[in-house]
Nucleic acid binder design. Structure first.
Lengths: 100, 100
DNA sequence: AATATATATCGATAATTCCCGATATACCTA
DNA sequence: TAGGTATATCGGGAATTATCGATATATATT
């Protein structure tokens, strides 16, 4: 994990917001339904986009940033890409704070 | 604590480095001696400046950033300003990660 | 193959950050 | 008060980031 890059990724109100939305998709995304029965793959770009008020390209870019630093996972299913919090990385970050 | 601002402050290699140096002044600063017998006030700007390889103004600015977001305390004694890690804020940040 | 939809990427501009040198301010000592 | 040292602030150029609209790519449907 690249500490500096992770902190940069978190140093943006909108990206931080997305991460918290992803904590509880049912609560934050009106028309959310899980894409898979058995595996939780998260929320598709379009839902996040609609909720955000930002453009589609910006949201796509932000999700790519969060993915690049490992804060979310990405799963392509058909024409949708679903993003989901990577809790391992997030809690690892919590521990890492102690080593700073 | 302003989350976004704290993450921005940490999203810089040099500021992160300074924070880790301040963890153990004896180890990282050759000619370090505590400024006070009874209270630990940390390390003065000049020492950090010399070790960093960056200019005095940049270091002063970086320390101001870290101070503004609460990651370090600042103590002026005579003509020196001493900066010290604010462990409370840092561990609070660790907890805050869980709420992200 | 043609079209429609979802997402990703490209190119651009404005805003912000990085980092500098120069200068100002604060404090100390003589 | 004058001069010296430590730190802070100012002004600026280069680099990066934020965010957009336009376009490309991938997938699905007919």
């Amino acid at each position: 994990m690249n500490q500096v890059e992770v902190f940069k990724a978190l140093g943006n109100k909108n990206r931080l917001q997305i991460l918290t939305w992803l904590k509880d998709p049912e609560q934050h995304f009106i028309d959310y339904t899980p894409a898979c029965k058995d595996v939780d793959v998260g929320v598709c770009v379009g839902h996040i986009h609609k909720k955000s008020g930002l453009t589609q390209s910006t949201i796509s870019e932000y999700l790519a940033v969060l993915h690049r630093v490992g804060l979310v996972s990405a799963t392509r299913i058909g024409q949708w890409t679903y993003y989901k919090r990577n809790e391992e990385t997030i809690s690892a970050l919590g521990n890492l704070i102690d080593t700073i």
